[in-house]
Amino acid sequence: MARKNNYIQEVDRFIGDKIYALRLAKGLSRQQLAEVIGVTHQQLQKYEKGTNRISVGRLVLIAKALNKTIEYFYSGLEDQNTEPTLTQHQRMCIEVSRNFMKIRSADHQNVINALVKSLVKESA
């Protein structure tokens, strides 16, 4: 059995966090992305949590499914001393973005955008 390596585990979590955040930002469920890349939603969850390591071939499929390059998933890795974590505020922003993308009406999206802009002006 291979020995655990903390740095490798941090890399796995770093890449998994990026997949998770990007999947949510694109408004995809875990099941939807899992089907596209040919794994179960449980396996995708293990990738996102960094529990299971992602092969290069599988990462290529994930990158294509999420319209990113392979480099995207490694970008910023060299600057990390610890694993990246999302704050509650970041998670809320991702959730708002995900829900916004589900709104089919461009008029409704424009109204929501105008509301957010007016709220920003009030708080400034």
Score class of each variant (00 low, 15 high):
residue 1 M to F: 07
residue 4 K to A: 09
residue 7 Y to T: 12
residue 9 Q to C: 06
residue 9 Q to D: 11
residue 11 V to W: 04
residue 11 V to I: 13
residue 13 R to M: 08
residue 14 F to M: 05
residue 16 G to F: 03
residue 18 K to H: 07
residue 19 I to Q: 01
residue 23 R to V: 06
residue 23 R to N: 08
residue 25 A to E: 12
residue 25 A to Q: 14
residue 27 G to P: 05
residue 27 G to Y: 04
residue 27 G to L: 04
residue 27 G to F: 08
residue 29 S to Q: 06
residue 30 R to N: 08
residue 30 R to S: 10
residue 31 Q to F: 09
residue 34 A to S: 14
residue 36 V to E: 15
residue 41 H to A: 07
residue 42 Q to F: 11
residue 43 Q to A: 07
residue 44 L to Y: 06
residue 45 Q to W: 05
residue 46 K to F: 06
residue 46 K to R: 14
residue 46 K to T: 09
residue 47 Y to K: 05
residue 49 K to Q: 15
residue 49 K to S: 14
residue 50 G to L: 05
residue 51 T to M: 05
residue 51 T to L: 10
residue 53 R to Y: 02
residue 54 I to C: 02
residue 54 I to F: 00
residue 56 V to M: 09
residue 58 R to Y: 00
residue 59 L to E: 01
residue 60 V to W: 03
residue 60 V to K: 05
residue 62 I to A: 03
residue 62 I to Q: 04
residue 63 A to T: 06
residue 64 K to M: 04
residue 65 A to Q: 03
residue 66 L to D: 05
residue 66 L to R: 05
residue 67 N to W: 00
residue 68 K to G: 01
residue 69 T to Y: 02
residue 70 I to P: 02
residue 70 I to H: 06
residue 70 I to R: 05
residue 72 Y to W: 15
residue 75 S to G: 00
residue 75 S to R: 08
residue 76 G to P: 08
residue 76 G to T: 12
residue 82 T to C: 07
residue 84 P to I: 09
residue 84 P to L: 08
residue 86 L to T: 06
residue 86 L to E: 08
residue 87 T to G: 04
residue 87 T to R: 04
residue 87 T to Q: 03
residue 88 Q to T: 11
residue 88 Q to S: 10
residue 90 Q to M: 08
residue 91 R to V: 15
residue 92 M to F: 13
residue 93 C to I: 10
residue 93 C to E: 12
residue 93 C to G: 09
residue 95 E to L: 11
residue 97 S to Y: 07
residue 97 S to G: 14
residue 97 S to I: 12
residue 105 S to L: 03
residue 108 H to N: 14
residue 110 N to V: 05
residue 111 V to E: 14
residue 112 I to Y: 03
residue 112 I to Q: 01
residue 113 N to H: 13
residue 113 N to K: 13
residue 114 A to F: 06
residue 114 A to E: 14
residue 121 K to S: 11
residue 121 K to C: 08
residue 122 E to G: 09
residue 122 E to V: 12
residue 123 S to A: 13
residue 123 S to Y: 11
